[in-house]
Design a protein around this nucleic acid. Structure first.
Lengths: 229, 229
DNA sequence: ACCTGAACACCGTTCAAGT
DNA sequence: ACCTGAACACCGTTCAAGT
């Protein structure tokens, strides 16, 4: 894992790339200033020459992911014009999801930032462009942005087990546990029994499979379509 | 803030109550084992007699909040039977929101738990009871649970500024900043200008006002109603 | 300009020891 | 049964100092 041959001097960019790689490989909790420095073959204090501190490192990581999303979205824009507004937003959100699938630590990290990263504003401005062009009022467009929640960034922000050990209600749930569950949680037990095959794809968080993501997305898009001015 | 007169011996419950009070008063980042112990007039190591460790303390806090929601919801159930399924879920989610408004640290904390708290299962079983009674299939009911996201627990999980300093896009946004913004974010700037009055109620996170919450909720409920079997 | 050593003020946690 | 002191292995960060 340690790359000793790196004698190009450190830079903000190199630090961020190494940090993303470390988070991808070992999770965000392994991302400490000391550990990251060791990964770069350097002392922890050296990082402070390139970044003001740890918060700024995490902000940088978030912007890094947002940059990937921005790139993926603008690759889309070439072909997307003239389509239905729903199809345009749909493929943008799904492109963002592709990026997020490669950085499972990103959703959790985004939730901890105190300021809105700059890249988000430009991205949201693009969403508004599409919606206003389709005839939505500012009021509905504004509410739509809130209603979308985290979908524009490609993840359904599940309440529990954001990226970690995975709740007990997954595909591994055994027959015995379901039987025990049936006593005090009858409906949930019956639903798990009926839906057990849907739980086999733990990509981003608890049951956030592609199917669930698209269902929620279309539910919102279709609902908004009926409110279009 | 320090209560010295407490000579009743510590207990798990007293520790949790003190922890919730500390988080309410100074935020979750002030909640360290050492600080909490000091608040209880005791040494940090004493806490380990009542709790296995910090993670378990945080789990306990989450269950504490879920307990409040459960109590509020069962107070509702007496009067709610016989109503439309949407009205039933609606008042449950709004009751949960009341609880969350008193514990602004709870949404963020819930996001960091690795296992699904037990109280959630019973709560979700109740939601299923309502939906199945209204004629929904297991499949749609399952997808509905995912689509709801964090709404059942009373908060719209906004992507940024969960409970902290508040993004720059709030009611304090000045005329000059909006003018500057208009250059590269034309739609966003126009929307803020048109909607500035809606941004004055920072309750849970960025723009998560009662109005936004209910808009999203009804959008989902009405969308699901059309899929009812 | 770029990196480092030593030190500071914190963490959570273990463990043997006190009463 | 309940609490503590001392110690360990970590954090992020400052600052004066090295090259």
């Amino acid at each position: 894992m340690k790359v000793k041959a790196s004698r190009a001097p450190l830079s903000r960019e190199r630090v961020l790339v190494a940090a993303a790689a470390l988070a991808d490989a070992e999770g965000v909790q392994a991302l400490t200033m000391r550990r990251l420095a060791a990964e770069l073959g350097v002392e922890a204090m050296s990082l402070y020459y390139h970044l003001p501190g740890k918060e700024s490192l995490l902000d940088g990581l978030v912007e890094h992911v947002l940059g990937e999303i921005g790139a993926a979205v603008s690759r889309l824009d070439a072909t997307a014009n003239g389509q239905d507004w729903r199809a345009q937003l749909r493929q943008r959100f799904l492109a963002a999801r592709e990026v997020m699938l490669h950085h499972p630590w990103a959703p959790g990290l985004i939730g901890t930032r105190s300021a809105v990263p700059a890249g988000v504003y430009t991205y949201y401005d693009g969403i508004l462009d599409t919606m206003l062009g389709a005839g939505f009022s500012y009021r509905i467009a504004h509410r739509a942005l809130h209603a979308f929640g985290s979908l524009p960034l490609g993840f359904a922000q599940e309440v529990f087990s954001p990226t970690s050990a995975g709740g007990s209600l997954d595909a591994q749930t055994g027959e015995a546990e379901i039987a025990e569950m049936a006593n005090h949680l009858p409906h949930l037990a019956a639903m798990v029994a009926a839906e057990i095959h849907n739980l086999a794809d733990p990509t981003l968080g608890w049951c956030d499979s592609q199917t669930e993501f698209e269902f929620t997305l279309d539910l919102l898009l279709d609902g908004l379509e009926r409110l279009r001015g």
